[in-house]
Design a protein around this nucleic acid. Sequence first.
DNA 1: TTTTGTTTCGGGTACGTACACGTAAAATAT
DNA 2: ATATTTTACGTGTACGTACCCGAAACAAAA
Lengths: 361, 361
Amino acid sequence: MGAAQKNDFMKENKELVGVKEIARRAKVSIGTVDRVLHNRTGVSKKTKDKILAIIAELEYQPNILARRLASKKTLNIAVLIPAVSAETNYWKAPLDGILEAGIEVKPYGIAVEQYFFDQNDKTSFVKQADQILAAGVDGVLLAPMFMKESEKFADECKKLRIPYVFINSDIPDHDSLCYIGPDLFHSGSLGAHLMRYLVSGNDQVLIVNISKEIDNLHHLLRKEEGFKDYFKKNGLNNEIIKQDIRSTDYASVKKELTKVLDNRAIKAIFVTNSRVSSVAKYLQEAKRGDIKLIGYDFLEDNINYLKNGDIEFLISQKPKEQGYRGIMALYNHLVHAAQFDKSYYMPIDIITSENYLFYNN
Amino acid sequence: MGAAQKNDFMKENKELVGVKEIARRAKVSIGTVDRVLHNRTGVSKKTKDKILAIIAELEYQPNILARRLASKKTLNIAVLIPAVSAETNYWKAPLDGILEAGIEVKPYGIAVEQYFFDQNDKTSFVKQADQILAAGVDGVLLAPMFMKESEKFADECKKLRIPYVFINSDIPDHDSLCYIGPDLFHSGSLGAHLMRYLVSGNDQVLIVNISKEIDNLHHLLRKEEGFKDYFKKNGLNNEIIKQDIRSTDYASVKKELTKVLDNRAIKAIFVTNSRVSSVAKYLQEAKRGDIKLIGYDFLEDNINYLKNGDIEFLISQKPKEQGYRGIMALYNHLVHAAQFDKSYYMPIDIITSENYLFYNN
DNA sequence: TTTTGTTTCGGGTACGTACACGTAAAATAT
DNA sequence: ATATTTTACGTGTACGTACCCGAAACAAAA
């Protein structure tokens, strides 16, 4: 054990057989082999079985290079995600990942096209979805922000046999190729765990949900559940107060916070999404540096507050990687016919003032 | 802003010109174009310049698919890393990443071959390095554990014009294609930052270095520097005690720890590498649950102690990804002739009992 | 001028696959 | 029986590049 050694690793003596060899062994032409490979018509059951047997025996792997070279048609992937708005640029990161994956798979004949919708406007989502269906694509990556509309769109895709991948939030049991995004419940638990380092005894804790969208709310609630569950499981008796803020502008946030913080001994705040910077701003203005803050997402605003200590922890779920992996999942499915897990939960990352410099969104 | 929109993105009107088009425009044959592309002999300066101009004008990008298909020769990448030993299986993770990248690039004509050496035996490193040179490879990925020997090997590679990538630890200013691994100093600072949540006032803090290898020690020292720097910068006056343990067996660890913990008010320990599980084991045995523990690396042993609270935080630097990216860097350089940064610092991840389930090593 | 040599270039084939087209054989209809 | 359709399969070309072979073109030697 541990001695110097050279490992030639599995030998890989695949010898890379191709259709030609298969054809030779089956005593048929290349064309026939090609037909069974793409299970097209025009091959008798007998020869088809024979060829299939040989393919299995030889563990034939089609040469991707040659395949894409010979096939002049490009595969189209449509992406349906919220537009990057002035309000929140969270979706810039997934988009970056999507674009990166896009240029990576382009040489292999994949075209990625973006369709953006407005998070505050369901009809824009429907409109873009219809465009995608009209365009006739080979795969779809979508953020199912609006529950009902997304389900409808997914059903359409299923009918047309277009594979689709959910990103960032899931609609379980809807036959998506897979889901790529966070496990919200555990994300909340982690928030609680970190909170534990910031409070003690019977300090009060505040949970803040800031969101205009009702449809988004269930995501936030899931985090809240995870958060509370942690306190309960660990026998912590801190009072947990909750405040929903249904307007995202700073004035509203300020008003609500002032109200809820008044006459209370709140020691720390858990903000369930990326709007945490608003809260940080308020605390700074109100000179409430004594209140610790935990929130979400690696955004410039948030990082700035993290740097000078107004935010203690940020939790992030690799939004860029979500986009990247989403495209790659479709690519692998379309080109390599690969199988994979139904859901891919992203890591739950902790960002502090000491490691944000090295974080990969 | 924020309105629904469709983005066709950069148009990409490259029209994918090939050698044929270049040949047509230059009024020469494909063969001639091919010669200048590979700057082989046999082309007059005049026609060469003309072709070069056209290539530049058209921003010609060779088709990787066709290129690798037509070229029957495969490129060989050698990997030189420590063997996974019973003592520490840290290197299993980078190896996994390397293997994963290996199968990924295999279809493109890249063969990855592993050469393992013994961390406790410099001569084994040298022996394997010589084998690589004898084998004649096109690229090398290596963990430069032994400073002097690694420098010598790197120089040899440079002489033979073989590109090489450092992984896990760096030898700066040595013309490596790039370095992929952690920023050790900041890693230590993060440890200190986390430590801050565990101690208060004038609690004593212990730093433990466990390593048999002198050559490895400078890595650990770098972390130590970052750790101490954080305390200093933040005006913390906790007494920091340091203990080197130069034998990795549990008995030695136990003995040294017993000694150093005796008659002291140590409240928390920072272990600078993956041996933290030994310390956790000791604390458990000695019923010193009051002492908090921070250490390194997502290893099974460590995770077990993390789960039941014996270890508070683990810091990890994506060892698997290091291996993966190392191979990919060489692949991109060899196949795509890509340029990239001299060093790629890995994210510094924090693992707790609440997020370890979702960590990607 | 012819011969020999050298430089410069064009033509052809191969890589492994996709697909259109064509043709022989089998099945069905007349 | 022949004619017609259907089924089953083979052939050829194309994708974009690598590389070999040999033919011009030109220069230097005879």
